[in-house]
Design a protein around this nucleic acid. Structure first.
Length: 314
DNA sequence: AATTCGCCCTGTCGGC
DNA sequence: TGCCGACAGGGCGAAT
């Protein structure tokens, strides 16, 4: 599922292509994905406006036009790709290890392509989403930050002043499992299932630990770990474990670097213990029972050696 | 008030 | 081989 690093990667690659471009035409093929305005007036109002800025906020991609804006959420399987007329979407399909046919480049327009933004010279932005959990939200004017979807969203984790943020201790008194808090978009923005598991592993915290039992030093460690795994995700252009693609259709390379997500039943990269998969906060959760052991506190020297090894490896 | 649950949806996969 | 149920899960609104 596209989380902060995936959405950031998409934004960074779409922005230089789209900014300054006039929208010549909009095709909307699945109307229920559009919120904020009926399809006909939406297309009428957007047409002719210029894309001034493309930004990211939480897991949303923000298209600021000269009058209005719209934001796109990729849901679970959303893909935002960019197609030049001169190099149309690549129709070549290759067989993956599981035997599935996947396109090599930009996915051709098909029944899952729900929105096409036509720019000058035949350039197009394609929004494709097989599971249709994504959303296109029209917002009149440019004050998208005050939209109900975003107004309560927590701070951006990568530009977060952690010590200052930690002064607010209210969220830390919760009885929820820590994984639920770190994935809560109103607490901190952009962390989803993949990077939550990775951040918890990196800070050696068991995902089911009750928030109120997380000590201050661990709170800080968790947020720092989140920053590291998110930044690494961006550096590797995102995690392609199923549907995520870069705007040119290519894969991100972060999947093979993950420590726990998607690795249930496999040995921990640090201690070789078999990673466990459980359900926490209604989400599949992978963790290392030893490195993130709850029960009797790990001996401090073991913890120190794990941390040392983690530092070296991660 | 805080937290959990049910729902939306469809491609993929495991079991029989 | 083929069918079918289970599963994946972000975020919202309902229920507890």
């Amino acid at each position: 599922m596209p989380e902060l690093p995936e959405v950031e990667t998409i934004m960074r690659l779409i922005a230089p292509e789209a900014e300054g471009q006039k929208i010549e035409k909009i095709e909307l093929h699945l109307q229920r994905l559009l919120l904020g305005l009926k399809p006909a007036p939406f297309m009428e109002r957007i047409k002719g406006q210029t894309i001034v800025h493309v930004k990211r906020r939480a897991k949303y991609i923000v298209f600021e036009l000269n009058q209005d804006c719209f934001i796109i959420h990729l849901g679970m399987t959303g893909q935002l790709t960019f197609s030049h007329k001169s190099s149309p979407e690549n129709p070549k399909f290759v067989k993956t290890v599981t035997g599935l046919q996947k396109p090599l480049g930009v996915h051709p327009v098909d029944k899952h392509t729900h929105l096409i933004v036509h720019l000058k010279g035949g350039k197009r932005i394609l929004f494709r989403d097989p599971r249709t959990f994504g959303k296109i939200i029209f917002i009149p004017g440019l004050n998208w930050a005050m939209h109900p979807r975003l107004i309560h969203t927590g701070p951006e984790p990568l530009t977060l002043d952690i010590p200052f943020f930690l002064l607010n201790t209210k969220p830390w008194k919760s009885l929820r499992p820590i994984k639920a808090l770190i994935m809560d978009q109103n607490f901190v923005a952009g962390v989803g299932n993949i990077y939550a598991d990775e951040a918890l592993f990196r800070s050696l915290i068991h995902p089911q630990t009750l928030v109120k039992n997380i000590r201050p030093a661990e709170r800080q460690a968790l947020l720092e770990a989140a920053q590291v795994v998110l930044q690494k995700g961006i550096d590797n252009n995102g995690t392609s474990f199923s549907d995520y693609r870069k705007p040119d259709g290519s894969l991100g390379s972060n999947y093979e670097k993950l420590m726990v997500y998607g690795r249930g039943g496999q040995p921990c990269r640090l201690c070789k213990t078999i990673l466990k998969k459980i359900v926490v906060a209604q989400r599949g959760t992978v963790f290392c029972p030893k490195c993130q052991g709850l029960g009797p506190k790990l001996k401090s020297n073991l913890k120190a050696s794990l941390k040392k090894a983690a530092k070296k490896m991660l």
